[in-house]
Structure formats: structure tokens, C-alpha cells
Computed example of a mutant assay.
Amino acid sequence: MSTPAEPTVHSVRIDAQPGHAKICLDNAPLPEEQITGYVLEHSITNALPTLLLHTRQPGHVQWQGLARVAVVEQVDPGPLITDFLRAINPAALDQAALDRDDLDGSPNELTKAMLAQLIDWAEGRT
């Protein structure tokens, strides 16, 4: 059995917009319908960047080459969201939403303010 050669460097171009990303390796576009996400990591002083692709595999896909492999565990966010919402004090949410400075008089403004407030709290902002 032969020892694999050292991985080679490939050029990467990512054109990312909300809702989609076009990723090209060595100027060849990857099938957008197969890419569900990516992580680009780079320790500037230690190595070249590493691109981790999350893919959806249709029935007959083959790939050959060298790659760093990472196993990404998909976590169901439902229980985390449920726990977060159960911990919300309804009176505090009402007051925080009413005190927001982004109320604009539009339809559903209170609901929008409550959702914005929940996002702020989820992200650790008060």
C-alpha cells in the first residue's frame, strides 16, 4: 500500500449572498444544490486556510481525492429554543418590547418588537 502524497493547495473563490453561496475550487464551480453550508478556518501563523464543506449527497455521487475530514454533529435546536422560551418572563418581554426605540407604528409592530427583543436576549444583548 502506497503512502498518499501531501495534499495540494487549491484556489478557492466564494461568492456568498443571503440564501446561497457559489463556491469554486480551481475555477470549477461546485454544484450549488449539493452545498448546504461551509466553514472557512485560518490560523494565519500556522497553516493555509481550511475549507469545510457541508454537503447534501444525491443518489449517485462519487468523489476521489485527498481531504481533511471533519464530522459535524447536527444538533436539533428545538429543545434549546423551547428551554429558552420557557425561561422568558412574559411581563418583562412586554415591557422590554414597549421600551424599544425601533417601534415604528407599522402593522404588527409589537410582535416585531417582541421578536427583535427575543433575538437580542438570545444573542446576549440586554
Score class of each variant (00 low, 15 high):
R125V: 09
A96M: 00
I44L: 15
P77G: 10
P107W: 00
R86W: 13
G37Y: 04
A87M: 03
L103A: 04
V61D: 06
A70D: 12
Q74F: 05
A91F: 11
A91E: 02
P58I: 08
D76S: 03
E123M: 05
I88D: 01
L30D: 06
H10V: 05
P58N: 12
V75I: 15
H42K: 03
R125Y: 12
H60S: 09
D83M: 08
A122M: 04
G124C: 05
V61L: 00
L93Y: 04
L110Q: 01
A70T: 09
T45Y: 11
L48I: 11
I81A: 04
P4E: 06
R100G: 00
N89D: 15
P58M: 07
P77R: 08
G78E: 07
H60A: 14
A122S: 11
V12P: 13
Q17V: 12
L110C: 00
L53E: 03
M114G: 00
E6Q: 15
D102V: 11
P18T: 03
L53F: 00
E41D: 14
G65R: 14
A87H: 11
H60I: 05
A87S: 14
K22H: 13
Q34D: 10
Q64P: 03
E6S: 10
D99H: 14
E6K: 11
A70P: 02
A96T: 00
L93E: 09
V72T: 13
I44K: 15
T55P: 06
R125D: 07
R13Y: 05
V71S: 05
L98A: 07
N27P: 03
A113W: 11
N108V: 09
W121N: 09
D76W: 11
T36I: 10
C24K: 03
P18G: 06
A70W: 13
T126A: 02
Q95L: 08
E73A: 09
T126Q: 08
Y38W: 15
L85V: 02
T8E: 14
T50Q: 09
P49E: 03
S43E: 13
L103C: 00
